[in-house]
Write a protein that binds this DNA or RNA. Sequence first.
RNA 1: GGAGAGGUAGCGAAGUGGCCGUAACGCGCCCGACUCGAAAUCGGGUUACGGGCUUAUCCCCCGUACGUGGGUUCAAAUCCCACCCUCUCCGCCA
Length: 460
Amino acid sequence: MFDTSLRPGRPIPGLGFFPEKPYAKAPRDEGDMTMLDLKLVQKHPELVREALARRASSLDIAEFTALDDRRRELLQESEALKAERNKASGDIAKAKREGGEATELLARMATVSDRIKVLEAELSTIEEAETAWLMSVPNIPHQSVPLGQSEHDNPVLRTWGDIPAFNFEPKEHWELGAALGGLDFERAAKITGSRFAVSLGWAARLERALASFMLDVQTREHGYVEVLPPYIVNSASLTGTSQLPKFADDLFKLAGTDYYLIPTAEVPLTNMHRDETLTEDDLPITYCALTPCFRSEAGSYGKDTKGLIRQHQFHKVELVRFEHPERSWEALDLLTRHAEVILQRLGLPYRVITLCTGDMGFGSAKTYDIEVWLPGQQKFREISSCTNFEDFQARRAGIRFKSKQSKKSALVHTLNGSGLAVGRTLVAVLENYQQADGSLVIPEVLRPYLHGEEHVILPV
RNA sequence: GGAGAGGUAGCGAAGUGGCCGUAACGCGCCCGACUCGAAAUCGGGUUACGGGCUUAUCCCCCGUACGUGGGUUCAAAUCCCACCCUCUCCGCCA
């Protein structure tokens, strides 16, 4: 079975946020570091500062604590006034019922109410600033994450399969796909623009077969519940999974609406349980979905301009897990294995790398990337990214669970990973299964999905 | 797109300015009594979040929340405005 010897150490309690209720309690850690996540900032600024430094974040913690001190001040004054007003309200009601007058009280309450309005106006300004600050703080990397500046510092965790030796010069997938009449980039550019592709005939069928195969393995063998979610989501969902507010430029927004095309099924799947309190027995909840993904690819001009590697639209089978905080680290290992199985069955060589602190995603506590070997490029290329967010997304999205004993609610841990990116898998199949005569052999596991087809032959 | 109805605890639902929001009433759920055990019946309990206090996730005190956001008022579930969602009917549509 799987090698489960990988066991990251103790997690650091997450630092995160939350759109509507930014001051929720953090889940209990195994140790004694029970505290509000804000208190993590307040009581252990050195821990947070160090974590931010590791991610090259320039956020100023003093700025935050100043805001928070002011917030408490305002809150306490306005709450005291509200208590007074509530009490006076009862007295006024009583006086009126008894036919009396309460002119003096009414006058004082008018002043009190005005003061409350002033306080609350300032309070909401402060809270806005505080939330903005919190929203821009990346997650704290797990202590097992290697330090590093960029993708060049990501250590290889393991490799699988042998790099194939070709007795001819292997072609790149776009060349092969075009030659075999399955990929048409020129017409896609006419229909839409650059970074789009038309698949036709065998290529379209092969991609559909790959997607079906992936879904079957994940649902039947790994127990994920198949979901067909909306491909369009609102800004609250994107905030929950942390694409917003910081990464709006990477998204396609529908003009005149609050709607966006999904950049990944992670967004609808994770937001399935936004603002819900689950029961402990519900966990883990595991979903998978095949969806198109839409990305603007802003800032990647000139990269991978040819072929299917970097498209504005691609299909992906995504895996999402909602886990008990005590089990999320073994779940990350499991999730990664679930993605790897697909490549193993397809006979595609790959390696797993651990993203270093400088290369991790914004909300990630730890990420493993799976990279498949592409003979045409003579390179390993990312085909899956498996991440444990710990409570980072759960805090923003308000996803809790109630434990039976303590009756207290805590934040769940969320994880996701591609299982796999379908378009890139097609690329890998093309490049790894190409033959000297320019034809393509269909991987055995896909043949049942293709009515037994074994080859794609070069058209005469 | 047009017309109408609605959104209050886990669910159903009452409440139309203060005496009703730890929210009536019913269901569910938890504990107890009765019972050999169960059902039925009877009694009790059962929102979340924030602030303060605190070693503390207990207790206690205070605040907030009736779809969302504004407004009127000393006081809003209740009155006014805008928006969102659900349902019914009509039109249109794959």
